[in-house]
Computed example of a mutant assay.
Amino acid sequence: MESGVESRDDTAGRRGSGGDRLTPGLALRLTVAFFLPPRFTPRSVRFDRRYRKLDQYRFIVWFLSLPVLVYGVFVVSPFLQAFFYSMTDWTGYSSSYEFTGFENYERMWNDDKFWEATGNSLLLLLVAPLVTLVMGLFFAYMLTAGGRRRNEAVAGVTGSGLYKIVYFFPQVLSLAIIAVIWARIYSPRSGALNAGLDAVGLDSWQREDWLGSSWAIWCVLVVLCWSFVGFYVVLFSAAMSSIPTEIYEAARLDGAGRSTTFFRITFPLTWETVRTGWVYMGIQALDAFALVNVMVPEHGMDVLPSYLFEKSFRDGQAGYATTIGVALFVITLLFATVMLRIGRRDRIEL
């Protein structure tokens, strides 16, 4: 008897709360029910279609609330603070500062050294991803599908497993160690570069100061590409290994060569990975602080992160340094947005 009464009450609750009219009282009960565990949900809203919709997103919201909170405190909040401090004369060594408005941005606009550092950063941004990803694609293709073996449609060159380890080896070294090693290589007196040029009879190519002249930016570019190409060899090799072998078998039966197979099959099917790698490598190129700070002598050349470091920690101009940081943030954001938009293409379904 009691179960029958309860069943009629549930039916009445479904009919009463299932209407399209949202009263203020019902809206309040729905809001409260969203923050309550399901077992404590009031019967008056449990069977409402709006509550069922809220219930679909309640778990997601509660699951993501803590990570989003941590992200907001430790990632978003520093960005907002940087925008604020860029409009002050804060030195970074005291708690006192004065609000100066857009004076730092006007100063940055008229700062020739800032534009020189920006030019160097943009050169690395444009050239480093192109060179690194082209080399990574070439080596990955040769190690994954560039060989020819009997009874195998897809095979890498002989010793491909060893080559992957060799290419990836720079990734196990920190950038500081890499910078120290290459600084010794570029040394004008005892460096391996000048000694090697002398050994092969190219004395005219030797330089007295590789890292203190206009060659510095190209020396940094070489080291940047060398240190990251192994990562993209492994990344692209993994993407190419996921391509079904039946596609390569069909192309081989049609008489397709290595170049045709790469440009018609491999490259289109790995484009999403290439685009992601391009964005990541561009960010790495903009963040060439460790290489420049360790390799290049003082005032030899600057990129935006090294110029920011100089203004903040050497000159005690943290307010102006955060202005440079805002400029670096805008350049990085524009680069990532442009690459993700112009590189967008229809997904290929196999």
Rank of each mutant, 00 (worst) to 15 (best):
I178R: 06
D209H: 12
R347S: 12
T273I: 07
Y320R: 05
V279Q: 11
I178C: 09
W62G: 08
D302G: 04
L125N: 09
M142P: 10
I181H: 05
S174P: 14
Y307K: 05
V338R: 00
F35C: 09
G282S: 09
S242P: 02
S86N: 09
G25E: 09
V70K: 02
V294N: 11
V166L: 15
Y57S: 11
I342W: 02
S160E: 13
R39D: 06
H299E: 08
C225E: 07
A195R: 04
P78C: 06
F228K: 08
L175H: 04
A256V: 14
A251G: 10
A145L: 12
T322R: 02
Y186G: 11
F309D: 15
F79M: 11
G161D: 14
T266D: 15
R58D: 01
T270G: 06
G343F: 07
R314K: 08
V134C: 13
R43G: 05
E106A: 10
F35V: 15
L124M: 12
T260R: 15
L211V: 05
D203T: 15
I283V: 14
N110W: 03
W115H: 14
T323V: 03
D55W: 11
V127M: 05
E152V: 04
A153W: 04
L291W: 12
Q317K: 12
Y248F: 15
L124S: 06
S204Y: 13
S213V: 15
L173G: 10
L193H: 08
A27H: 08
R14Y: 01
P38E: 08
Q56F: 06
V32R: 13
P37W: 03
G325W: 02
L54S: 14
T91H: 00
E298T: 10
G212W: 08
R52M: 10
W115C: 08
V73H: 00
G230R: 03
G191A: 07
A12P: 01
M281Y: 03
L80G: 14
L350F: 07
T132E: 11
V76C: 03
D111A: 03
S94V: 01
T332K: 04
Y248G: 11
A318N: 02
A128L: 10
H299K: 07
Y57L: 13
I185H: 08
L340F: 06
L80R: 13
T88H: 01
L122Y: 02
F114H: 00
E249A: 15
T323C: 03
L328R: 09
F267Q: 11
E152Q: 15
K113G: 12
S7Y: 04
R148S: 15
T158F: 14
V5K: 15
W205C: 01
L202P: 00
Y93S: 11
D9R: 05
T158G: 12
D198Q: 09
